[in-house]
Design a protein around this nucleic acid. Sequence first.
RNA 1: GCGGGUGUAACUCAGCGGUAGAGUGUUUGCUUCCCAAGCAAAAGGUCGAGGGUUCGAAUCCCUUCACCCGCUCCA
Length: 521
Amino acid sequence: MLRISTKSVDMDTIVSLCKRRGYVFPSSEIYGGLGSAWDYGPLGVELKRNVREAWWRANVQERDDVVGLDSAIILNPQAWVASGHVKGFSDPLVECLACNQRFRPDQVLAGEVVRFGTPPIVYFTTLNAVDYQREWARAQLAPGADSGTVMSASPPPRTFQQFDSKKLPCPFCGAIGQFTEPRQFNLMFKTFAGPVEDAASVVYLRPETAQGIFLNFQNVLTTTRRKLPFGIAQIGKAFRNEITPGNFIFRTREFEQMEIEYFVKPGEDEKPFQDWLQQRFNWYLNLGLRKENLRLRQHGKDELAHYAKDCYDVEYLFPMGWSELEGIANRGDFDLKQHSQHSGKDLSYFDEGTKEHFIPCVIEPSAGVDRSALAFLIDAYDEEEVKGEKRAILRLHPALAPIKVAVLPLSRNEKLVPLGREVYSTLRKSWMVQYDDAQSIGRRYRRQDEIGTPFAVTIDFQSLEDNMVTIRSRDSMAQIRVPIATLRGTLGKKLAGEAIEALPEGGVMWKTEEKQETAKA
RNA sequence: GCGGGUGUAACUCAGCGGUAGAGUGUUUGCUUCCCAAGCAAAAGGUCGAGGGUUCGAAUCCCUUCACCCGCUCCA
């Protein structure tokens, strides 16, 4: 794809364009808005639909080892107890009153923090559970040995100390005794199922779509007769009471996820994990994100959840810096094990070959629809100089562009309109197409450039005589002239990536400059 | 939640005690009109909201809401 300039764009430019052209509106705007909520307009809804479809196509339709699912947003609350979200998806935070910085107590203390009750009393220990286990195991080995097998039961319980806000120094400004008491932030939206608002009817809006997949593991297994390895894919809304939402649609409290849980036999996780990393990274590249704006970053040990074996983020260079589009985690057998324990149901897999039962391990590529859409918009945005005027273009991949083709009669002349309408109604059967006959042709090209429409079909007076129309490329502004009979097929090829210069039977190059000079002479 | 900043037309902004403005965009008409064209016209604002001071408030004061930047978290 042709790239004339590669200058970066700031978020305000994108927000403004989105509002002005109907991609994204501030939610509840006539009531003064609602923090961090955004509505997708006529173009935005198409873009998101295209992102979802591209994802579904690559991860479900074109694979024979992944099937889809659409689980409920509201699950049995026990699901969130088992997943750890009820306890763990909340963070006690302390704030330094001297410098107004906020910390998690474990960052102040460099250890693991456990909290109880509301308000929470925070306890900490200098070692987290995994390190503790490891340290303990090492202590059991013969003196001087680096490795070996420890034949013993579990280590003794760790000792915890209570967090004391009055004695600890602030890691940022060093002030002592300036911390607030730990405050609980529960990131799950809580509501009530049924008309009575009591404790027994509390339910949560899902903070991720993944758990709905784990809950249906056995259902999918038995109904589809799948064998490991296989995956379940799901797209849907999720809700998190983020402490700090922001950066436009990057972090919102209501957002949409595209998640896969890929189940593998324990010990056979490494290759599929590496495969998923590559495939997910390439998915973004194939849809047009520039390579220099995309990277794969491995999580440090301190970033990993205690059960996770490995995790990479696909990151994009947003205006506010490198930020996560997707997390791909090698999660071990934690999830199914948790649900098996809490539900009392057997979630193991029976391997016909080896005649053994085991809990499958899970690889989880988890992407954000809204974030992807934002990255595609930002990466596609371009400005160039055309005859001293600024041309703003969204160089969106044709698969993502909300409108594929614009039909533009040269003017609103009564002779041109019927043919324009006819072409429009024919093409609409294949794609999202826009018809526009208002104002000058140049202005309409620019309008389509700005919303990312890859091709414009122009009907002129000559079309009435020779039954040919021009196709104009958004990226190069080059034009060809083709018989109307071949229009649909030709556009199909162009949208699939064929060069604009490739001509169908009876087609010709259309030379704007010569024509203009002729007209002037 | 805390600190700092900003709210005026669809967008970008000016005005900062005395009749609400500009550019862009949008709409309509005319022109056989191919790259933000020309000419003519029009629509569009309870100046974020509420209260106060004042003869008079977009402008000064208070409150509130939203947004932006930072801190934490994450798709």
